[in-house]
């Protein structure tokens, strides 16, 4: 048995309010193995992004991680890291592609400068070395190095999203977190991006925490899937089990409300 790259133990996160606190994550525990693609699914507002931000240590007040929670990356508790350790942790250990990341590139910088920014902050590098590394990273996501001199608005949405992923891979993280990385894109572009991620994680060995609403897509790419409901992780299983024999009623209901592309359509009573 290898050691998990990520181990979340009894994670409790509240949003602190003026009068009452909102309990967003209620005692969640799960592991991700090195190289594994782990999917996290569940209704809007169930706490998926809150967990993603906590794991990458990007959570901000009013979010408060309660005492007793543990987030171990490679065996080290990331909740106890000081500022210096955090700087070394981000990008090298865990990198995150945000919901709507394709709009997060700096519009006034060329693609090359965006790579240089990250590489320079975290490593001793020259411009030449950074350019060579950036070209190599772009090739990983099927983008020609000619694009280094382009600005974000000159690239399509799918291309911008792949650039963000390439930047996230710049420092060889052990865990890549992707929060709804392809929601606004057509299914062909979505498929190209995720197929690329699937190949890269096998080639480079990083693990992925993948968040989406689309259960069918999740079953296609994930090794294991966790289903969340109102802050609780209600079911964790390998992808085929989640699809063929879901255990929790909520997982069954999710499947029952997915319209079909061919054959008999779902019945209306599926909604409640």
């Amino acid at each position: 048995m290898t050691n998990p790259v990520l181990s979340v133990r009894n994670l409790v996160i509240d949003y602190i309010g003026a009068e009452t606190d909102f309990h967003a994550v209620k005692g969640v525990s799960f592991d991700i193995q090195p190289g594994e693609l782990f999917g996290l699914a569940g209704e809007s507002g169930c706490g998926k992004s809150t967990i993603a931000f906590a794991v990458s240590r990007l959570h901000r007040p009013p979010a408060l991680i309660r005492k007793g929670s543990e987030i171990l990356v490679d065996g080290r508790d990331v909740l106890t890291l000081d500022d210096d350790a955090l700087r070394a942790f981000r990008w090298r250990e865990v990198a995150m592609v945000f919901q709507s990341a394709m709009n997060s590139l700096n519009p006034v910088l060329t693609i090359e400068e965006q790579f240089y920014d990250v590489l320079r902050t975290h490593t001793q590098t020259t411009r030449e070395a950074a350019r060579a590394r950036a070209a190599e990273l772009l090739k990983l996501v099927d983008i020609s190095p000619d694009r280094l001199s382009a600005y974000p608005h000159q690239c399509s949405g799918g291309m911008r999203q792949r650039i963000v992923i390439a930047i996230c891979l710049a420092l060889n993280p052990k865990l890549l977190i992707m929060d709804e990385p392809t929601t606004a894109l057509d299914v062909v572009v979505q498929r190209e991006i995720l197929q690329r991620i699937d190949t890269l994680r096998k080639q480079l060995g990083f693990a992925v925490l993948f968040i989406t609403h689309d259960l069918s897509l999740m079953v296609q790419v994930s090794d294991r899937i966790g289903i969340m409901l109102e802050g609780h992780l209600v079911e964790v299983n390998d992808a085929q089990t989640i699809y063929h024999s879901p255990q929790h009623d909520y997982t069954k209901r999710l499947w029952a409300s997915m319209p079909k592309l061919h054959g008999a359509q779902i019945v209306r009573e599926a909604t409640s």
């Binding site: 299914v187 498929r191 995720l194 699937d198 689309d214 296609q220 592309l261």
Partner: peptide, 16 residues
């Protein structure tokens, strides 16, 4: 092409 890329839980990504 578009229809072949629609997420389908019966097809793993490996067999594109």
């Amino acid at each position: 092409l578009l229809l072949s890329a629609v997420p389908d839980p019966d097809r793993r990504f490996s067999d594109a």
